[in-house]
């Protein structure tokens, strides 16, 4: 038993027990390796590990694991890189990103799509062009006040730290 327990600790990256990002101290990355390990569990092992959770939470985890599993190896690699970079941000910025993400998920799917496209567009622009775009008539008419605010904060999050 002891050998098995030590084996598990080694599999998880030894003593580097990650601190939860929601706790606000997430400089230490929780490796997506952990997610990958869960993806390689048998359905029975996963069911056992998740059985204490309420059904809604359990389904959400299963759904997201599935979504991750369905990414191509290249997409998974890119996402791991993003995660690695995200983990290096200061905890306050990470928490801010999560708050903005929550607000984003509360938009209707079609509005999410619009905001996402605009965000991708804005972050590719140089600062001056971005400001021009955000002051444009089209931008003002296209988004609600809440969405505009969200975009401003999202692009602000993308700026390098002062």
């Amino acid at each position: 038993m002891l050998v098995l327990a030590v084996g598990l600790a080694a599999q998880q990256g030894g003593a580097r027990r990650p601190v939860g990002p929601r706790a606000g101290a997430a400089r230490n990355p929780v490796p997506p390796r952990l997610v990958e390990r869960w993806n390689h569990m048998t359905p029975e092992q996963r069911r056992k590990a998740l059985e204490r959770l309420p059904p809604g939470r359990r389904e959400q985890i299963e759904r997201r694991l599935e979504r991750y599993r369905n990414l191509t190896p290249e997409e998974q690699r890119r996402l791991r890189n993003r995660y690695e970079l995200f983990s290096q941000l200061p905890p306050e910025r990470q928490d801010q990103a999560r708050r903005l993400w929550r607000r984003f998920t509360m938009l209707m799917p079609e509005r999410q799509q619009l905001v996402r496209e605009e965000f991708d567009h804005l972050r590719a622009l140089p600062d001056a062009d971005r400001r021009t775009r955000m002051n444009s008539e089209e931008f003002r008419n296209r988004f609600t006040a809440g969405e505009k605010q969200l975009l401003v904060e999202l692009t602000g999050l993308n700026q390098p730290e002062p």
Binding site: P21, R22, V35, Q60, I61, L65, R98
Partner: peptide, 8 residues
Amino acid sequence: VERTLDDL
């Protein structure tokens, strides 16, 4: 795992 999946 849940937190990591959220972030991913």
